[in-house]
Simulated scan of single mutants.
Amino acid sequence: MEGEDKINIIHFGLSGNPGGIETYLLKVASRIDRSKFVFSFIDTTGSNAGPCFYDEFADLGCHFYTICPRRKSISQNKKDLKKLFNENIFDVLHFHVNTLSYIEPVLIALKHGVKVVIHSRNAGTRGSFITNALHFLNKKRIEALNDTVTRVAVSELAGKWLFGDNQKFTILNNGVDTEKFHFDKNARNEVRKSLKINGDTIALGSIAAFTPAKNQQFILDVLFKMNKSDFKFKVFFVGDGYLKTGIEALAKKYSLENCVEFLGKKSNIPELMSAFDILLLPSFYEGFPNVVLEAQCCGLPCIISNYITEEVVIDKSLVCRLPINDDSRQGWVDEINNVAKMIHNSDAELREMAFRIIDERGFSTKNEIERLENLYSSVVA
């Protein structure tokens, strides 16, 4: 394999959809010191198109190894993994997961003398009974491995969720590209013009995949209660997913068609954040949501669920954490109105300074990559 004088890292966790893990890995792959590290990826998507961002990773010199998906054949999946580690030399398996329902790559890598980093990317699941049962059983198996694996998490909540309260783990918070997510007044004006957002409209943004964890229905419930306000509101849903059709139907049921717009997947997230006035994220659980970090970098006020770790709150003046139970919708209505008044009475140029706090507190992408490189070096030392 190429790069024998470098540290060879093989990653597991890529899917065919641009989620948090995929976006994180592309960010890391594009910024890691390629004179010291070589990245490879295990592809279990079972798709001819390959995993998400395949072309981008390939352009960065990354390698891919196709493994039979376990949903297709458990026995072939194991056989392919054994062949992979028999025929190639890797220094580290970086295992990015939301649950421990599947740990075969970890077990096989360890048998071949490969160091393993297990990286908890989330703080909960709404999976099936089987997924939850396997997670519970494999959690015990990972505990029994003791110090033979390195445990990493994006937050305290994510670490405790995956590894348990009594296991030691390192917190490696996500970082944000402060130059990319810096507030841009020109982008704000251009995007608002293209989306036909009037000057008297407060643009509420939801940037999330349509999955059970993201709880977009709650946003519509809140919007439905906002019939009396001094402001005109419109929600822009950015993202895709299998629950999107149901949310669109609910918007029609609530007669909110004129108050919501579904933009689908978008690549211009920084520009959209500059255009939006408030970010809404009523999630049931998150590991360490990058979207909230990016929003703070952009000076975009955020109203988020109190189930989301407080570790993501870097600038307390920009983030409000609220409950998401049945009795809390009015609280969200009141807070949205309060933030709208604050925005109405403030100068948008104040948002241009927000990125400095992210930099000062060590949450830039540069700091994140440095910590990851140090982690890899320490694991193989």
Score class of each variant (00 low, 15 high):
L250C: 06
S128K: 07
R126L: 15
R71A: 13
R126V: 15
K160T: 15
R31T: 06
F363D: 05
D359V: 05
A58T: 07
Q76S: 14
I207C: 15
L318S: 02
I304E: 08
T245I: 11
K341F: 05
D334K: 15
I247Q: 08
K36H: 10
L81P: 00
F53E: 03
K193H: 14
Q296W: 08
A213I: 00
I108H: 10
I369W: 00
E248M: 12
F57T: 08
I130H: 03
G20T: 03
F57H: 12
P212Y: 02
L134M: 10
L375Q: 02
I21W: 00
E286R: 13
G50Q: 05
S377F: 09
M342E: 12
S40V: 02
N198K: 13
N98K: 02
E257G: 04
F363I: 06
I118P: 14
V339M: 15
K139L: 08
T99Q: 03
G239H: 01
D221Y: 03
N88M: 13
K225F: 10
N86R: 15
I32V: 14
S101D: 01
V28L: 15
Q216A: 06
T201M: 15
S194G: 04
A348C: 15
P270T: 09
L93E: 01
I21Q: 01
L195M: 04
L293S: 12
G287A: 06
T131P: 01
K6W: 06
L256S: 12
K111M: 15
S155V: 11
D359N: 12
F276D: 08
S194R: 07
N174I: 01
I278E: 04
L162C: 09
V149T: 06
P69E: 01
K180G: 07
H94D: 05
H11Y: 10
Y102I: 02
V38F: 04
I358W: 05
L256W: 07
P212W: 03
A133F: 13
S206W: 04
I108V: 13
F224K: 13
T148F: 09
C68E: 13
M226C: 06
V238K: 03
S283F: 03
H11S: 11
